[in-house]
C-alpha cells in the first residue's frame, strides 16, 4: 500500500493547490461534469431555474444552512456525530408517517433542509403543493398534498423539544393559525400568484423576536412598588421555544439621588434547561401568558429601568445579547 492513501492524495492535491494557486486552480480542478437535462427526478438545485423567488428566500433561511451552520458543525464535531444528520440533512419528510421523525440522507447533504426535504413525493416523482388545483402538467409535476401545509410536516423535525405540542391549545391554534401563519407569510410571485415566503424568520430575526413579546413595567399606584411583566403575545408556542440554548433575561437597575445608575441586576430567566442541568426547571413563557413580578426599589421612590435581553445561548455576555425592550419603573 502506498504511504498516503489515494483519497488523502486527492485531498492534498485539491486543498493544497487551493491554498497556493487560489481560486483559478479550484475552478479548473473542480470542473463539473456537463449539465444534463433533467431526465429523472430532480435535485433541489434544479428548482432554482423556475422558482427563483422561493429559492432565493429559502437560501436566506436557516433551513438552507442546516448542514453548513457553524454552530451546528461545532456541536456535532463536523457531523462526525451522525445522530445530527437526521434533521440537518434529512430525507424527504413526506416519506415518513405524519409527525414521525425523519432520518438522514446520503446525498447532497450540503443543501440541508432543502426543497425536496419538504416537497418531494415519497416515491420520488412529483412535488407536493398545498394548492388544491395545481398545474399538473408543469415540469415538476405538482400534486395536491394537504399535509404540506399541516403542522405535522414541521413536527417531524420540530417536536423533539415540544414546539408543536406547545402550539396545541395555544391562542394561535384556537384562531386556526398554524406554524405557516407566522413563519411563512404571504409573498407575491411573478404573474400575481400568491406564494408563501420561504425565509422562516424566527429567533435570528429581531423583528420576529420583537413580535413575540410585550414588556411592560411601572409602579403600583396603591402600594408604590415597582413591577415588570412580560407577555407572550406573538409566538404560537413558548417563548423562547425549541432550541434549548436560548435564554431571555429580565434585568433591572436603579438610579441614586444624584442620577447615577447601579449595575444591571438579574431578575428572571425564561428558558428550557439542558437535560443535565438538574437544578433548573423549565421557565419558558407559554403562548398567550403573562409573567409579572414586583421589584422592590432599594429606597422608596427610587426610579429604575427593566430590560429584556435575548441570548442565543445561555452563556452569551450581556453586550453580545439582543435587547428586546426596556421600560421605566417610577417617575
Amino acid at each position: 500500500m502506498s504511504p498516503q492513501s489515494g483519497a488523502a492524495r486527492i485531498a492534498a492535491m485539491v486543498f493544497g493547490l487551493l491554498a497556493t494557486a487560489g481560486v483559478l486552480a479550484l475552478a479548473l480542478l473542480m470542473k463539473k461534469p456537463p449539465e444534463i437535462i433533467a431526465l429523472g427526478p430532480m435535485t433541489s438545485a434544479d428548482c432554482r431555474q423556475c422558482h427563483a423567488d422561493a429559492f432565493a428566500e429559502w437560501e436566506g433561511s436557516h433551513h438552507a444552512i442546516a448542514f453548513v451552520n457553524p454552530e451546528v458543525r461545532k456541536l456535532s464535531q463536523d457531523f462526525r456525530n451522525e445522530e445530527c444528520l437526521a434533521c440537518h440533512a434529512p430525507r424527504p419528510v413526506l416519506g415518513f408517517e405524519p409527525g414521525e421523525r425523519v432520518l438522514a440522507r446520503s446525498s447532497d447533504r450540503k443543501s440541508g433542509v432543502d426543497c425536496l426535504a419538504c416537497h418531494q413525493h415519497p416515491d420520488g416523482e412529483g412535488i407536493a403543493t398545498a394548492n388544491r388545483s395545481p398545474q399538473k402538467n408543469a415540469p415538476c409535476k405538482p400534486y395536491y398534498e394537504p399535509r404540506l401545509a399541516d403542522v405535522e410536516l414541521c413536527a417531524s423535525c420540530h417536536n423533539q423539544h415540544k414546539t408543536v405540542e406547545q402550539w396545541r391549545g395555544a391562542p394561535a391554534e384556537l384562531k386556526g393559525e398554524n406554524c405557516l401563519a407566522c413563519h411563512m407569510v404571504d409573498a407575491f410571485r411573478e404573474g400575481g400568484r400568491r406564494g408563501r415566503h420561504h425565509g422562516f424568520p424566527a429567533a435570528h430575526d429581531k423583528v420576529a423576536l420583537l413580535s413575540a413579546i410585550q414588556l411592560l413595567g411601572g409602579v403600583d399606584e396603591s402600594s408604590g412598588t415597582p413591577w415588570v411583566s412580560l407577555s407572550n403575545v406573538g409566538a404560537g408556542h413558548n417563548f423562547p421555544t425549541d432550541e434549548r440554548s436560548r435564554a431571555a433575561d429580565i434585568q433591572v437597575r436603579w438610579q441614586d439621588e444624584i442620577g447615577g445608575w447601579s449595575e444591571w441586576q438579574h431578575v428572571y430567566r425564561f428558558r428550557d434547561p439542558y437535560r443535565d442541568e438538574t437544578d433548573l426547571t423549565n421557565t419558558q413563557l407559554p403562548s398567550g401568558e403573562t409573567w409579572r413580578q414586583d421589584l422592590p426599589a432599594p429606597s422608596s421612590g427610587a426610579s429604575g429601568e427593566a430590560r429584556l435581553l435575548y441570548r442565543s445561548n445561555p452563556y452569551l455576555p450581556d453586550d453580545e445579547s439582543i435587547e428586546l425592550g426596556r421600560v421605566t419603573l417610577g417617575s
Binding site: S5, A7, M13, M30, P33, D78, R80, R109, K110
Partner: peptide, 28 residues
C-alpha cells in the same frame, strides 16, 4: 485511486464544490 494509485495524474478528480469538507474527511 485507492485501487490504482498511479492514475490520478492522468485523470484529475472532478471534486464538486458541493462536497463539504467534512464529507470529504468522512471519506478519508
Amino acid at each position: 485511486f485507492e485501487l490504482e494509485p498511479d492514475l490520478e495524474a492522468e485523470y484529475p478528480p472532478r471534486l464538486s464544490d458541493n462536497l463539504p469538507q467534512s464529507e470529504w474527511d468522512r471519506r478519508l
